[in-house]
Design a protein around this nucleic acid. Structure first.
Length: 214
DNA sequence: CCCCAGGCGTCCA
DNA sequence: TGGACGCATGGG
């Protein structure tokens, strides 16, 4: 586990040249590997569309073509364009990001294609608001460590973490990157092969079926 | 061939 | 209100 975590630099983990790229990346990475998002971002940059203002005015088909590698590209293209238009209507990225955390969140969550995780990701990594981001990796790690069997509930996990930590954006960026990188190495199902799992020693699944006895 | 990916909106019991 | 489903390309 330490070998994985020691290589993470929270300032490099979600790197972006502009705040706009955080918004674009947050939408494109939904249910998608980051390597495919990078391809799409390169395409958008090459076409001069890697900003909220340019996306708002861009041709829908050209957006679709550029972001195809991320999958769900028709949905994402429409949502990217409409979200960009809404943000421009609200004064642009800089103004929206300068709003108080709750007002920013309310705008983000009202956008089609922006749910709780995406809104929190944008607020945290784009606007430096101290909000903890939950995702499937976070849930995968927590549910195994604490032996939770109930369905994934975003709000419950978020409230629990924020209740036992100081509300600090840099801390939450670091924690999120840890959960994601750890989660990537944790089995998806109740896989009995735990030898190389970074959390095998504290995983309730392994304890239950005895595969961690060594 | 299979399963999975840094979700979300919609629909239905 | 929560569980299933469609969205779709790319990688292992």
């Amino acid at each position: 586990m330490y070998l994985i975590l020691k290589q993470i630099n929270k300032d490099e983990w979600w790197k972006a040249d502009t705040p706009d790229e955080i918004i674009i990346g947050a939408i494109l990475t939904q249910q998608t590997q980051w390597s495919n998002v990078e391809k799409a971002m390169r395409n958008l940059k090459r076409e001069g569309m890697l900003s909220i203002s340019r996306l708002a005015d861009a041709n829908l088909q050209s957006i679709e073509r550029a972001i195809r590698p991320t999958g769900f590209y028709r949905q994402k293209a429409t949502r990217l364009k409409e979200a960009s238009e809404r943000i421009m209507d609200n004064g642009g990225v800089k103004r929206v990001f300068s709003l108080p955390q709750k007002e920013l969140y309310d705008i983000l969550i009202s956008l089609k294609g922006v749910g709780m995780e995406t809104a929190d990701s944008i607020a945290l990594y784009g606007a430096d608001k101290p909000t903890f981001v939950v995702d499937n990796y976070t849930w995968r790690v927590i549910s195994r460590v604490y032996g939770r069997e109930e369905p994934y509930d975003y709000g419950k996990i978020k409230e629990w973490v924020e209740g036992v930590t100081t509300r600090n954006a840099e801390l939450y960026k670091e924690m999120h990157s840890y959960f994601v990188e750890l989660g990537k190495s944790v089995c998806v199902k109740r896989d009995p092969i735990c030898a190389q799992c970074p959390i095998s020693r504290i995983c309730s699944y392994g304890k239950a079926n005895g595969s961690h006895s060594r």
